[in-house]
Amino acid sequence: MDLSPIWLTLKLAAITTSLLFIVGLPIAWWLSKGRSFFKTIVEAIITMPLVLPPSVLGFYLLLAFSPQHGLGKLLQDTFDTQFVFSFKGLVLASFIYSMPFMTGPIKSALQQLPVSLTQASYALGKTQWQTFKSVLVPNIKPSLLTAIVLTFAHTLGEFGVVLMIGGNIPGVTRVASIAVYDSVERMDYAAANTYSLILFSITFVMVISVFVFNKYQAKSPLE
């Protein structure tokens, strides 16, 4: 039994979630403050992967990063790096695909905090950054946990976008969801069942932990 797709999936989810936490938190903060036409456009672009068929996103990423032309060729020639059919490509695709799961819950949580908290901190002479770090972030912990778990779980479940840009290379881009599909194609139902069961268990435990950790919050743990 080859467990490498499981490890690869967990590695992909861990890297994607870490990167998205670092990048998504400031983006969510920026989106939560006021409204402008530019922000609306940015938010729409970030939200697109929620409704777009994953294969469409994967197709465009495949075109954009194909080493034969455009951006992909530039990266190939300048940095000798290739995103298509590589693990890096999977990280990039997952990053874009899972971004709304990180920014969404954090943005709503920040918007639900009373504006007077920020105002009180400013009146005490604190900067925007001090206010963010000491007042805003500590008061949205349940939503941070939700965002992290949703992003991780969503990356575990990716299929279409990963298949389009990464293909099905054992040990490189064959993640668990693709291994399930591949096993069924080969009529190896035992292997498909093992992969599926492991994915099911991991996801179930994660969702349960969010419910347990957020039980003191008087709202749905998945908000």
Binding site: P114, S116, L117, Q119, A120, S121, Y122, A123, L124, G125, K126, T127, S134, V135, P138, N139
Partner: peptide, 30 residues
Amino acid sequence: LPPQKRMPGFVFQDYALFPNMSVLAHLQYA
């Protein structure tokens, strides 16, 4: 001038207390 430069002692009608901070932490933050 931004509020940080005016630094008034402001008591908000809804108190605007920080839920994550203890009584002492509120004052030490200030």
